[in-house]
């Protein structure tokens, strides 16, 4: 908050995401959405009863899951996207401060220093990337049953089921936080955010 006294807010927008980055996010979100909705229709009895068509829903789920990593892999061709992956990967001392504040439910901006991405966003990105690949691997073991030994398939189902539940909860948190921050959503929708928002939420970011 003290920042505002030093630097008077301007009305100018600043660039946060390129078109490629937004395309990667949108496509990944759509594929993940198909995975989650079809999974619910296969898994929750009331929805399964309502929708039926099990073979079709299974096919949709499998192909959406298989395609899920494709947008990110395609995004690697973009220099801006690769640079953001680097930013998501690297943790500095300020990230430790941010995480400690998050653990203590300290919501003051002064105790939540962040560069382009805050520590929570970094952790989420790394975890969801790993979790997606685990879902892909276990999903393939359930799909192509002849490729792996007998016991593996039951084990893969077990991991796939429980990780699906975990991803569902974490994803709900991700969407919930986006819903609570219209300016962050605008950044992902249009590529631009207000300078005032950036200086408040991402104090260390030098665009």
């Amino acid at each position: 908050m003290s920042l505002r006294a030093d630097t008077p807010p301007t009305t100018a927008d600043i660039r946060r995401f390129t078109g490629t980055q937004r395309w990667v996010h949108r496509t990944t979100a759509a594929l993940m959405g198909v995975c989650v909705v079809t999974a619910a229709c296969l898994y929750i009895p009331q929805l399964a009863e309502l929708v039926g068509r099990r073979a079709l829903v299974v096919t949709l789920h499998q192909w959406a899951g298989l395609a899920l990593p494709v947008p990110v892999l395609a995004g690697l061709a973009s220099r801006a996207f690769r640079a953001d992956l680097g930013r998501l990967n690297r943790f500095g001392p300020h990230d430790r401060t941010w995480l400690r504040a998050a653990l203590h439910r300290d919501k003051r901006h002064i105790s939540r220093p962040a560069a382009k991405f805050n520590a929570g966003q970094k952790l989420y990105a790394a975890w969801i990337a790993g979790a997606t690949l685990v879902m892909l691997a276990t999903g393939l073991m359930m799909w192509f049953t002849h490729l792996t030994p007998l016991v593996w398939r039951t084990s893969a189902t077990f991991v796939h089921d429980w990780l699906a539940l975990t991803i569902g909860i974490v994803l709900a948190g991700h969407i919930g936080m986006a819903l609570a921050d219209p300016e962050a959503r605008r950044g992902m929708r249009t590529g631009s955010v207000s300078r005032e928002w950036a200086e408040r939420e991402h104090t260390l970011w030098r665009p």
Partner: peptide
Amino acid sequence: HPEQRGTPVGRRVFLGTLGLGALGVVAA
């Protein structure tokens, strides 16, 4: 600038998640 240096925690979390997934299959 701070956002360009630092420990590669993201990569560790990513690989750790993969490792836990593999461990989960083994221990299932």
